[in-house]
Design a protein around this nucleic acid. Structure first.
Lengths: 241, 241
DNA sequence: ACAATTTTTGACTCTTCGTCATATTCTATA
DNA sequence: TATAGAATATGACGAAGAGTCAAAAATTGT
């Protein structure tokens, strides 16, 4: 609220912006405290007044990114279609996000490695966990809606968790494999981001989530969701290429 | 073959053993070249005669681990059951491996991060890629066998790749999520390693891979495969707990 | 105007990677 | 067996980056 506090907050954002830019363009190697200090034109000590370790900067970036993802997931949840379309929109959001912010996804994985996590204050870890809860919460809500409205048979074991986890692991795994630079063509495979879309629908079909993908065109659905919900992101992605 | 070369080879293994032990018990932070040198009672320079960077040691560990995994996958491929049981055995192998060697899986992910990969000689990268090909090759063979013998309808798009990729992403994602220490209970979920077994079978069912899981008990199948193919690993796992 | 408080600074320590000139050990030959 | 020459091992050293802290500078309140 007061001027002083606002300045502090803005500098914190400046540090995160700068660090994020370095990370995106030059990788983790180039992200050093000295470099960040030089770039924001303050001394290293000042950077340490804001973040007490390099890891906390990375964690700060992750937090901001997760908030972006939550916003996109929120749009998916609020889509005025049937529940199957809404859960599909989550998949589209996740995939678009992964393509737009590859570096950030890798961050999130870095954050989770124990070596890094140990150096982050418990309070900030709690914050990250709370954001993670929001993400899974949104997906869980859609699954529960589908169960309530009879689109998804409720007599199956482990529901609703198993669907959330199935989609999560598949999306997460494919994103990580994708951006880990495995040469899929040399393994005789196409890009995983395409196939995860197909496989997610196979999984949903298997859970008998109505309407089944045999009764509509999943490619057209993806295009429609892209255009209606994530036009901005789609545009950004095309500009990048 | 000659004594000299054998000594060199043995020391190389000693370095890898030592590094792996440190990594397993104390994490990436504690794995330093000085530490390894001290532990094997040679000088740092000697360690560098074997591996020209810390990253190459990690890569070396990954190679050995991948060879273990390939051996386990091989047992799954050679299981004298139907193809659905054989592909399920791959899942059991992967899961057991993940539980037995959590640190190694995290390594494999570390190896894939661009920062690390840049510091590994092209030749060793090729070796890793070739091992990765063997892993996917085994799975691909089982899928192709199933298609050939009519257990799996061939009129579906993207086959056989999409099944391999579906299982791979799901297994990979769940393992990483599992060992990244996300408190699933706090997110209102059970452990992912249990559910990936369920979801993998859902996926296979969705591809119409006969016999469908509705016609047998997947829990009993897992127990049977555990006992018949991976008794040693199961025993090890129980001893660890 | 000035004292008290807060913030900023960058020199400093510590750790670790990776190098390289020197020292040691091994090997082949006279 | 003695010795030259090759192969191997060593650890002191340089570089780079994380994190600290006492002193300097800026800000605030009276």
């Amino acid at each position: 609220m007061p001027r002083k506090q606002r300045e502090l907050y803005e500098r914190e954002q400046l540090i995160l912006d700068t660090a994020q830019k370095i990370l995106q363009h030059e990788g983790l190697q180039s992200l050093t405290m000295d470099r960040v200090a030089a770039e924001i034109e303050y001394s290293k000590g000042t950077v340490y007044n804001h973040f007490c370790s390099k890891e906390e900067i990375i964690s700060g970036i992750s937090c901001r990114c997760m908030i972006n993802l939550i916003e996109m997931f929120g749009r998916a949840r609020d889509y005025p279609g049937n529940h199957r379309e809404r859960i599909a929109a989550i998949g589209v959001a996740h995939s678009l996000y992964a393509q737009l912010h590859p570096a950030e996804l890798q961050n999130m994985q870095i954050i989770k490695s124990s070596a890094v996590r140990e150096k982050i204050a418990a309070e900030k870890q709690q914050q990250l966990l709370q954001l993670e809860q929001q993400v899974t919460g949104i997906v869980l809500d859609i699954v529960k809606d589908a169960m309530r409205d009879g689109d998804l048979p409720t007599d199956q074991p482990c529901l609703p968790d198993s669907i959330v986890l199935g989609l999560w692991t598949m999306g997460y795994g494919s994103n990580l494999l994708h951006l880990s630079g495995i040469p899929f063509d040399q393994l005789g495979m196409q890009q995983p981001l395409e196939m995860v879309w197909l496989n997610s629908h196979k999984l949903l079909d298997s859970y008998q989530w109505q309407p089944l993908s045999s009764s509509f065109d999943i490619k057209k659905l993806r295009d429609r969701l892209c255009n209606e919900l994530f036009a901005t992101e789609k545009q950004l992605l095309e500009n990048n290429k």
